[in-house]
Amino acid sequence: MCRVVVAPCSPFSVSPELMRDSAALARRHGVRLHTHVAETLDEERFCLEKFGRRPLELMEDLGWTGDDVWYAHGIHLNDAEIDRVAEVRTGIAHCPSSNMRLGAGACRVEDLLRAGARVGLGVDGAASNEDANIATEAHQALLLARVRATSPTALDARAAWRLATQGGAECLGRDDCGTLEVGKCADIACFRVDDLAHAGIKDLVAALALAPPARAQTVIVNGRAVVRDGRLLTADEDEIAREIAATSARLAG
């Protein structure tokens, strides 16, 4: 239920030595590696000015490619870099809401998928999203890919849902998660489709990504129900809301 990852923050907040040492450390212990790459053009300019390298070139130099690595964002990748990311089997966690909130750019999801890259979805921190709903990210990913490509075929609903499930599991190195098949972990989400937002939509799987994010009625993790009737069983949601309000006020100073 818990696996640790080594993850220095980003090329503009971590020294090359630390990036290199972290990769060595992770590989010595057989754990995965994660960092931010190619999120903004400011980052690209920083890397070119300070290191004389584009962000992905820098990652290559530092030993930060391979199938044990996944990057957050991967927005500003050129054609050759997209092919390279796919070739080395490095994952990309696409975070459409955060990227749009910060005006960071639009990840070339359909190009990455066409090249054979592993792509999952992330909510990113709530300070650049204000939510944590992966179904929303699937919806946003579908719409953003179509805006970017000016094409309604850039990303279909089932492909978007795959990003939200199996694609993310591949980024995290979990071939035992992400699909409902015999032998896989019993991690299951049940979404209500009889409410006003979804009732009458014929293709219910497409509805999951096309229509507003559906209410999760029952959620099972590792064969155990943690959400029933849309309510959290393992903690008191109202108490959590009160605590986060108080903590946010305290940090605001």
Partner: peptide, 19 residues
């Protein structure tokens, strides 16, 4: 009244930022 799908996977987050 539900569609059951594989549980969703979140591949990037900074949870402390909720505050």
């Amino acid at each position: 009244n539900c569609v059951a799908t594989p549980g969703l996977v979140n591949a990037h987050d900074h949870m402390y930022q909720w505050a």
